[in-house]
Design a protein around this nucleic acid. Sequence first.
DNA 1: CAGTGAGCGAGCTTCCGCTTGACTT
Length: 801
Amino acid sequence: MAKNLVIVESPAKAKTIEKILGKDFLVKSSFGHIADLAKKDFGIDIENGFKPTYEISADKKKVVADLKKEAKIAETVWLAADEDREGEAIAWHLFNQLGLKKEKTKRIVFHEITKTAILKAIENPREIDINLVNAQQARRVLDRLVGFEVSPVLWRKVKPSLSAGRVQSVAVRLIVDKEDEVKNFVITSSYRLTAKFYSTDTKKELLEAELPKRFATKDDATSFLSDCLNSSFAVKDIVKKPGKRTPAAPFTTSTLQQEASRKMGYSVSKTMVVAQQLYESGKITYMRTDSVNLSGQAIGQAKAMISNTFGEEYSKIRKYKTKSKSAQEAHEAIRPTDLTRNKISGDSAQQRLYDLIWKRTIASQMADAIIEKTNIEIEISGNKEILSAKGEVIIFDGFLKVYMESADDENGNSEETKGMLPVVNKGQKLTLFEMTATERFTQPPARYTEASLVKNLEELGIGRPSTFAPTISTIQKRQYIEKGEDEGHTRKYQLVCLKEGKLKERIDKEKTGSNKGKLIPTDIGVLVNKFLVNNFVNIIDFQFTAKAEIEFDAIAAGKKEWNEMIGTFYHPFKKRVVNAMENAEREKGERLVGKDPKSGKNLYVKIGRYGAMAQIGESEDEEKPRFASLKKGQSIEDISFEDAIRLFDFPRSVGIYEDLEMTVAIGRFGPYVKHNGLFVSLDKTDDPASIDEVRCVELIEAKRQKDRERFIKTFDEDTEIQLLNGRWGPYISYNKTNYKIPKTKEATELSYEEAVKLIKSQKGSGKKTTAKKAPAKKAVKKTAPKSAVKKKAVKRTAKKK
DNA sequence: CAGTGAGCGAGCTTCCGCTTGACTT
């Protein structure tokens, strides 16, 4: 029996550490936090110094019970949660919830999983740092208060089920602000002048130069070109300047997400899923980190590896410091666990991400690249303007041998790769090949991608490595933002070219305005943001978190009481909440777009209970207004009258199939065709306004086929038990609850007895179907047709069973 | 889930961070 119980946060970490510590130590994991604020009444006693009520999280009951059992029989319990605010709180909760004794409990910390680091930690135990725990309690309580006080205001004033929070609301604000900048940006154009010269008499090599200044109009550019018709050109000067490039720091969560997005196009969640796989198979260190630090062991291994492979002159030991003020640095940077492995087994995503991490880590310990920048100035006879040709030569490649960081392409211009220039001499005459003035447009600011949003949040100190990916999915799930799908359009631009003593004009085309994959606010996002800015500026302020962090630090240092800090924040904040609840205007975003030609009534667009909608007539009128949902991609801000009025064309009858009518309409989940009680979603490419009978039949048949495939078999003994094919493979459905089938079993060969056994063994543990219950139906509508009432009532009782 | 959207207003929604499985469009 092990004398020592060590508790860490991550199970993968537990496995590694157990190997290091040997048989006297049992190493277990808490799987992160085990306790959290109770859900009811905020879990905070506001009247009594904000005293929190904690409860063991539902999914951690088992973990805690198990740990409790092991702790009882151990001589010493070592609490080895991470060394940061959250880790200290985890240790504290473990101490409390496991009922540990002070005499037999020790708190230890290490920042890297190496034998020396862990043994050193064991030799230097300490007690739980209650000040640090209090800083965490302040953080937790603040977030609960903000989230649970402000969200209900939104339910009342904008739309039910919405949410606000210290992190998510700022993320949305960044995206809304950016969209405003894009919308307000005025695109102008100017003319950029480039010239190509023959550098030798053999006319083999071309020297490319550019005029530093731009021309405002085509006339200006043309007049410059015609001035050059009879000019001669000569090299005025050649200036060489030495330069260098330095490798980027090893990966943190946020920089890994950015690079994987830029180099491989991964979403932040994809990057995290793949990184987790690499971590669990022991190939990389922990992937949720804000540290750029490498262990001494890793640095030593990198040095040996680089010297052996590339030569000693390529190695340079570097220690990086974090630039982020909010960093807590409980772990190492993300790096391969074994730097000598430059290739791994695994699927292609794993291999590519590993390769990226390996290269970045190795490069971070390599020498600078030495470059030489050259600028050739070219004079024009009879003209005071000077052309300039810029080039770059790598004298020593250094870290560039393995890795080059990508840059965010802020303005959509691809970075020009400056290469080597042909050899020319000072005073040499040059022959003009061609000179071109090209119309260039100014670019609006780039919209955020997932990764560049993460970068921005991190710079503001908002959010943590473990929450960047979840935050992005939260604001998408709340439908505050969505990913753009617009491919853009082509735009014409003009060129004036001087060649062989003649001026010629032509027009070319380029693509612009794509927002594909970029983060765009929705109508609701814009509205909620407007409401929050109007009523809770202090919470939405970009500095709110940074200021709170300063106070958390003071609490951690024992210079401030956490409940005092919360009190100072809460009382004025609560006044704003009450004020907003009582006085704030309901935010509907209503806009009058025109008049319905048929009834002569007003046509509005606004946000309703279920999202963006159009409405004909007034709510106050005796006769009920007509309603229609907006389609995906349409916005109350800029939908045209024509598009809005067309929404009332639905439901539309498309024809008869099997003696029954088919109708096309737009519902909660987009356009669909309905036939004999069967609903089939239209394809993205189908236009609900023009879709025909043939296509609808095709869709219905495809849906029927899919439903048939879903069905594997039933048993004669009990037809209620069904074997079905789902998204995650075959499963058992019985009485509206689902049960899984072990992966080792072939579903088609499952017997009735086995199925019953599976159902019994999973009973109780099986959660009710997670499919979110339909939004609570309101009391039956009085005006609704009777048949509909009946249908709903029947459905409901059936569900209750 | 699917032609909702006001209303008398029950009873529901909601936060951030730390971790993995469980999830059944």
